[in-house]
Design a protein around this nucleic acid. Sequence first.
DNA 1: CGTTTACTGTTCGTATACGAACTAAAGCCG
DNA 2: CGGCTTTAGTTCGTATACGAACAGTAAACG
Lengths: 163, 163
Amino acid sequence: MVNRGVPEKREGTGEEAEISASQRGESRDYVLDEQVGFILRQVQQRHAALFTTRVGGDLTPTQWAVLAKLAEVGGMSQNLLGRQTAMDNVTIKGVVERLVKRGLLVTRRDPADPRRFSISLSPAGSAVYAERVGPAREVTRETLEPLDSEERDALLRLLSKLR
Amino acid sequence: MVNRGVPEKREGTGEEAEISASQRGESRDYVLDEQVGFILRQVQQRHAALFTTRVGGDLTPTQWAVLAKLAEVGGMSQNLLGRQTAMDNVTIKGVVERLVKRGLLVTRRDPADPRRFSISLSPAGSAVYAERVGPAREVTRETLEPLDSEERDALLRLLSKLR
DNA sequence: CGTTTACTGTTCGTATACGAACTAAAGCCG
DNA sequence: CGGCTTTAGTTCGTATACGAACAGTAAACG
């Protein structure tokens, strides 16, 4: 049903505004709703909404990722933490800053390398993690709820290939 | 106390981090890298990077979505456009605003309903769409490149269920 | 040893994304 | 008609996300 041949070609440039490209039929079928990037964005929006509902609006998915990673492997430098949680060094800085301000993280200068400082969970951070890891699992479960067990495995396998 | 045979490795940063929940074994296995939300975020990051490379940094995926939707179905109100492109009314406002400022969109008040105005592509907007729809297709192709044809269909089918 | 390169963290600017609260106008209904 | 609800669009505030450019230090290497 979907045209898969993909012969690339030609754009007529001199055109009138009101007649859309697809209406002229000159560009084969670029349907927004079928583009993987657009679908991905919507799935992530749904996930984020579930996260807010279940885990709570005072913790965002990115902030949770930081707490979870630190709970998982312990303290590490800010930049490494960013890499482990898929954030660039500007983003991780902001996230850490806000979590420190809320008392969930503690930072301390690394004596071996004065450029970096080690970041770890505070007792309050550990408590928040312990308290919300259940809801966080629920979010994962609910996100995948429309799929059966076999489909879930397949999806995670395929998505992981695209990371 | 649940002591499984899974040895949690410490990082060699030479510090005594808090004892993590997973190290205590009190929370069964919440591994960030296996959570669908975390994977989704990474896949979207990869897609966004490809988009910037291929389509160009002066157009974001969301801006492209607006152009593509308008090219597909023609003019419509701002809020409807937002719904069609999966943006809330605040986000779509900002996106439209920036595209109007760049001359890619035109707006005009709806005489039948003075609250709303109709948004459509300007000639310049149509030209930009025609010029970049090819690269945009490339982005979709490259994003899915790690998968074979069968896997791509499966992924899109599964993702669509989670929208 | 000193130079070059790489890494850590920073600030600045721009662009999504969304909750909350608001104005104004349309639609509905008794 | 008048009142209630819904919708279209706006403003404000906060939180990712990332490119670009920067300073300071570590590491590599000749």
